[in-house]
Write a protein that binds this DNA or RNA. Structure first.
Length: 283
DNA sequence: GATATATGTGTAC
DNA sequence: TACACCTATATCG
């Protein structure tokens, strides 16, 4: 489930599992054999995430490992001696003492990058809600001046780094924003509420290892002052409000959840809670 | 066994 | 806008 929270969690876990230790690196599948050979036997210093990009630093290596999981990549870390690899394992790490291993499968990117190449990637990324010191002003400057739909802007990694299709759909729902409203229509206070909510939701996602935007403890639409209370009992089976719930009744207003493919991606929203034009009461 | 699907990105037309 | 790419899993016949 690779949105930004997944990569930050992975960076944290790679660092805690392998950080400061010698790592055996291999490419059972063979497609990263050269890179694995360069890393093999080195001390893994630290892993770090920027948006959906993961970087791993090794001692005395002039290049960083760069991994992007794409749509279905995964890099689970497991305990115990590593078994014979199953399936297409691009890169395997085994800890020096053999007590843990991690198999990388299906990444869109798995490369060794020079500092200049790393910089080029980072230069293309907007502020990441999960990074300390992220500057939301950079995102606001892009959004307020763009007539592109909010749905497009939120998925644009150069505007905000780390949001994927699930967080996009859910954040728009929670703030009652129709996905096709232009960036120019977003007010400053509403942007600040969206950013703050992203930080909170993605931090939760990183901690829990899954996306959960429907929480009993808070309001479905957190920006509504004095609005209804949390969803309460009967919602415990659900993690999200609208993502992949096309045709189901909205948990808040009862109208069917809509689905459309926009820009090649599945887009979900509630016509009732997310009207094309803001109702007067919400301005 | 074949097909469809996915929380993503990059390229070409 | 379409497709290519990377892989596992679910569903269908």
């Amino acid at each position: 489930m690779p949105e930004g929270h997944t990569l930050h969690r992975l960076a944290r876990d790679l660092t805690s599992t392998f950080g400061g230790r010698t790592v055996t690196a291999s490419s059972p599948q063979g497609r990263f054999a050269g890179g694995a050979a360069l890393l093999d036997g080195r001390v893994l210093l630290e892993a770090d995430a920027w948006g959906k990009h993961l970087f791993v630093d090794f001692a005395e290596a002039d290049r960083r490992l760069h991994v992007h999981l794409g749509l279905y990549g995964a890099w689970p870390i497991a305990a115990g001696p590593a078994p014979a690899p199953v399936g297409a394992v691009r890169l395997r790490f085994v800890g020096g003492d053999g007590s843990s291993y991690a198999d990388l499968r299906g990444p869109t990117a798995c490369d060794l990058l020079t500092p200049a190449e790393t910089r080029r990637i980072l230069d293309g990324l907007g502020p990441d809600p999960l990074r300390d010191g992220a500057d939301p002003e950079r995102a606001w400057d892009r959004i307020r001046r763009s007539r592109a739909p909010l749905a497009t802007l939120l998925m644009d990694q150069s505007v905000i780094a780390g949001i994927g299709n699930v967080y996009r759909a859910e954040i728009l729902f929670r703030h009652r924003l129709h996905p096709l409203r232009p960036g120019t229509s977003l007010t400053r206070p509403r942007f600040e509420a969206v950013w703050g909510d992203l930080v909170a939701l993605m931090t939760d996602g990183m901690r829990e290892g899954r996306i959960r935007t429907l929480r009993e403890s808070d309001r479905p639409h957190p920006a509504d002052s004095g609005g209804r209370a949390g969803p309460g009992a009967g919602w415990r089976d659900a993690d999200v409000y609208v993502y992949r719930r096309a045709g189901e009744a909205c948990r808040v207003c009862g109208r069917p959840i809509r689905h459309e493919v926009v820009g090649g991606r599945n887009l979900f929203w509630c016509q009732g809670c997310q009207p094309p034009i803001r109702p007067r009461s919400l301005r």
